[in-house]
Amino acid sequence: MDPLIFLGIPIGLAFGFALQRGRFCMNSAFRDIIVLKEYTLLKAVGLAILIQMVAFAALDMAGVITISPNTFFWGANMLGGFVFGIGMVVAGGCASGVTYRFGEGMVGAMSAVLGLILVGLMTTMGAFHPLVVALRGATTVTLADGANLTLANVFGIPHYMLAFGIAGVALIVWAIRSMRAKESPKKEQEKVSLNTRIFKKGWGWQATAIVIAIIGILAFVASTAAGRSYGLAICGGYWTTIQSLLLGQNLIGWLSVMLLCTILGSFIAAKIAGEAKLRAPAPKVLIQTFFGGCLMGFGAALGGGCNITHILTGVPQLALSSIINGAFIIFGCWTLAYFWFVRPMRNL
């Protein structure tokens, strides 16, 4: 066992802490655009992606990491993303959302994780695996030299130019928008200590985005050192851990260590804030979240990753697989959220 996998410990603890304090859940981020017209978490996701986009490109140029886009298999990316998006609405949380709520003590999230592990393993190595092989096989597209597709290599633009360009345009748009926005009357700020702001209160979206992005960047560097050229992810960590326990093989790597510490990190954050408590919804809801987890497990195993692998880590690498998969996660999320929440609320 490579001792460098234990670099996953501080990364995981910090990641779990930040997820819990920042309430970083992409299900809430995407779903609530249409359900509650709420954009706070979406802004956190967007900013975290942009910061990482610049940092990954710079670190790749410096030779510290290697941009490692996932393989583009459009059929599996689309179907996997769509099913995952539906699953996270059913489960009430995405892969990172259910993981941090697991640490908080929400039993509904724990049952979602169980479903995600069970059907994820059935899809990565069990009964559903032939479907994965067939769909990926039939829809895989790479460059002529076998390289995985990114927005940059598809259009023949140097990676760093496109990454810096996208981030630059986003920065200009944001600057113009904030200049145009009317000065909103400043709310009277409660005077609270830094300690309270970090450990007791939920973080604002900017702080959440910056901290998650820094953890994402360090994760890529640490994981590369341990022989895995990728950044943050979630599902693979659950699967390799449980597969190791079930089959007695040692598949424990950087990601497994990081993920277990993520759950612990969010428990610590919740405990300090006084938000940790075992609490369960009605039995019917527990079955619902389990089923949602099953859908997420299937979707992530088919599409080559969950929302963290694709949206938080893949999109900043400009991976075409992650951009398409991420778009279909959002599409799946919106489809079910429309029928479950938007339409019933409108018909009141």
């Binding site: 359900v35 009430g92 949380g93 959302g97 509904g108 609490r279 809801v285 609320m345």
Partner: peptide
């Protein structure tokens, strides 16, 4: 004990 976003939606 309710899952996201039911507390928000039910309140509204």
């Amino acid at each position: 004990g309710e899952i996201c976003p039911n507390p928000d939606v039910k309140t509204m």
